[in-house]
Each structure stands twice: as C-alpha cells, then as structure tokens.
C-alpha cells in the first residue's frame, strides 16, 4: 500500500492533463454557442475563427472557456461527462430493469463479449494446435509459420468486410460467426508464437533425460513440453484476449452491425454524439481490463499449483 500515493498521483496527473486539453479542444464550439446565444466573441464569425489558432481564441475570450466544459456534444468531453454517460447507459438502466435494452452498453458489451470469447477460444485452439504442429513437424514449420506471420501484416480492417461477405456467401447469416472469425484471426498469432517458444523451452539435458527413460513422443509432450509451456501460454493468452476484443470491435465497425460496442462507436460517429463514442470506448477498455485481469488471476492460480514461488 506504500505505492498507493505515487499511483494516485500519476492517475491525477493524467486526469488533470485531460481536463487541461478540454479547453483548447472545445473552444471553437464553445464560442459558436456563445455567439449564437448573443454574447460578444472576438473575432466574430465562425469562419474567421477557423483561421485563428485555438490559443489566440482562448486568450481573447477567457470568459467563454468555461463553456467548453459543459457542451452537449463536446469534441472532447470531460472525464465526468464520460463517467456520467457511462453510468446513464449502464448502471442507471440496470437499476430501471432495462440492462438489456438496445440503448444499454451492458447489452452491447455482452454482444461484444460473446463474440470475443468465441473468437478467443477459436484463436487459442488454432494457436495451440498450430504450435504443436510447428514444433513436431519441420514441414509444418516451413509451410505454416511464414503464412502465420504474413497473415498479421494484412490490415484487419481490409480483411474484415471480406470475411463477412464470404461467410454470408456460405449462407451464414448469424453476425456472430464472422465476428468471431475476425477476432480469432487476430488472437491466434500471439498464442501460436508463445506456445512455439514454450514448447521449445525445455533444455537439451531435459530432453536427453527423457530419452534415457526411453520415453515416447507423447510422454515427453505430456510430461515435459506441455507443462514447460504453461507460463508462456498465459502470457500469450493475455495478449490474445485483448487482440480478440479488438478483432471483435473491428468486426463490428464496417459491417452494418447494429449491436456491439463497435457498432455503438460507429453509430456515435454517424450521429455526431461523441459522448456515446467515448462511453463505448471506455466500456471496451473496462472489458479488456477485466478479461486480462481474469487471465492474470487464472495464471496466478495455475502457477501456484505448479509450485512456483509465491
């Protein structure tokens, strides 16, 4: 707990920076509003102001800066505004018994979470199986590894619409399936790389030891390579689950989806409601944080069972 103070200080500094940034970000909008409300603003006219730097505008209209902190559709909302919007679309709706209404972020988060977990499971399975293949077969290593690396250089936003078009060609109408595939596409790679490293982590001596017991390939996989790879696996899973969430959200963006956090971000953009975007972004961040924490907790549990020093 001795670190509480420094951690809080850093957190406060970030919030302070955010608050400071709100003023220049929103000054033009604030001045437009003020002008419309009949106040005198220097210089007059929104077009003239667009030629003037925000710093000058702030210096010439110090009285109107505060307005930027209370806009309905701010370019950059304050943390309190984002928090309020988050609460309005989650806790408050839950209190009114409408947690799963289509206006609730709990509903959209749940949709995203489902696809994320589905994609995560799929990606992890592909990653682990691929790694086992690569470690045990030179042919697999030469044929799969380059494609795995190339696959990650293709921008996922370019690929996502194609996956959706292709899966609807195949008669898959369920939106969750292509989303999960996109999510698995991003998620399998860190798992694959981590598991290859983990399965190869046993030393020459450890492998020789098993040879002196005349152990078969399956026994050495089960007794040595697999347990040796567990720490690597968990580290990869933490990256993988975050990648799976990103994949799902990307899968929800360009696809005409109407539910999910990605769809909320897109809709917020189209309807000019930055608060909705920010609330969805924070919901996604909270979700990612929760998933990574959960895996970290499972890792701790597994490591303790495997006798690692607490």
């Amino acid at each position: 707990m001795t670190r509480l103070l420094p951690v809080l200080t850093v957190l406060l500094a970030i919030v302070a920076l955010w608050y400071a940034a709100v003023a220049p970000m929103n000054i033009r909008q604030a001045l437009d509003m003020a002008e419309r409300g009949g106040a005198v603003v220097v210089p007059e006219g929104s077009r003239v102001r667009s030629e003037t730097s925000v710093w000058t505008l702030m210096a010439q209209n110090t009285g109107e800066i505060a307005r930027g902190y209370a806009l309905d559709r701010p370019r950059l909302p304050t943390p309190v505004q984002v928090g309020a919007e988050l609460w309005k679309t989650t806790g408050e709706m839950a209190l009114r018994g409408r947690a799963f209404s289509t206006r609730s972020l709990i509903y959209h988060g749940w949709i995203t979470l489902q696809s994320t977990l589905f994609g995560f499971a799929l990606g992890t399975a592909i990653g682990i199986l691929g790694a086992v293949g690569i470690v045990y077969s030179r042919t697999m290593e030469m044929s799969v590894m380059p494609w795995a690396i190339i696959s990650q250089t293709v921008p996922i936003v370019a690929l996502a619409p194609m996956i959706i078009v292709l899966s609807s060609q195949l008669g898959i109408e369920e939106r969750a399936v292509p989303k999960a595939i996109i999510s698995a596409y991003l998620c399998f790679f860190p798992v694959l790389v981590g598991m290859v490293k983990g399965l190869r982590s046993p030393s020459r001596e450890q492998l020789d030891l098993l040879r002196t017991y005349n152990a078969g390939g399956f026994a050495s996989f089960l007794k040595l390579r697999l347990p040796a790879s567990v720490p690597y696996l968990f580290t990869s899973l933490k990256i993988g689950v975050a990648a799976a969430l990103v994949g799902t959200i990307v899968g929800e963006l360009p696809t005409g989806a109407i539910s999910g956090l990605g769809a909320r971000i897109l809709i917020g953009d189209q309807f000019g409601t930055p608060l909705a975007i920010w609330a969805a972004l924070f919901a996604a961040a909270i979700l990612a944080g929760a998933l990574v924490t959960l895996i970290g907790w499972l890792q701790g549990l597994a490591m303790r069972r495997m006798g690692v020093r607490a």
Partner: peptide
C-alpha cells in the same frame, strides 16, 4: 540397453522439473 532401461543417468545440472515436487 537404453530401450531396456539398463542405466540411470545423472546430469551435471540436477534438472528437476520445477513444477513437480
């Protein structure tokens, strides 16, 4: 002889599996 498990081998490093007691 190896397949008949005729010998036990002790390496320079103890090489105990850390995840096993």
């Amino acid at each position: 002889a190896r397949k008949a498990r005729a010998y036990g081998y002790v390496f320079q490093a103890a090489g105990l599996y850390p995840w096993r007691t």
